[in-house]
């Protein structure tokens, strides 16, 4: 880190950029609802309509960026069929929203 410090003009520009990004998101929160928050709730509601989601089996990650923010929702869904030894099978659904190209990626995987 200290070597890195020699080649830049101090840390204030980093502080400035971090604050600009954070405050842009916080100021928006008052006027219109947080898009990622809404997406998160609706994705969970849609899945929840079809299967019981265990809150412990849901991982949600967000990263609020300058031009792009990302939301990643990772849900483990129990399969209806059981493995021969009685161990329940799980599928995982992963959503990745707000990618660079504006796409919403949907991935599913079965164990």
């Amino acid at each position: 880190m200290s070597l890195f410090n020699f080649f830049r003009r101090g840390s204030a520009p980093i502080a400035r950029e971090r604050l600009q990004i954070l405050l842009a998101h916080e100021r928006n929160a008052g006027s219109h609802p947080d898009l990622l928050g809404v997406l998160r709730e609706e994705i969970l509601a849609v899945i929840g309509r079809h299967v019981t989601i265990e809150p412990d089996k849901v991982q949600i990650k967000m990263d609020r960026g300058k031009t792009v923010s990302t939301l990643a929702v990772d849900i483990e869904i129990p399969n209806r069929d059981q493995l021969p030894d009685g161990v329940p099978r799980y599928s995982r659904l992963m959503f990745d929203a707000g990618r660079d190209d504006g796409s919403l990626e949907l991935k599913g995987s079965g164990i």
Binding site: R40, P55, Q59, M62, D63, R64, G65
Partner: peptide, 23 residues
């Protein structure tokens, strides 16, 4: 701590039951 962009849930959400602690 440099984690401001990654906050999803908070202490109050856990207390209110909106989120589980690990989340």
């Amino acid at each position: 701590m440099g984690a401001e962009r990654r906050v999803v849930f908070d202490l109050i959400n856990v207390i209110n039951g909106v989120a589980k602690l690990p989340q």
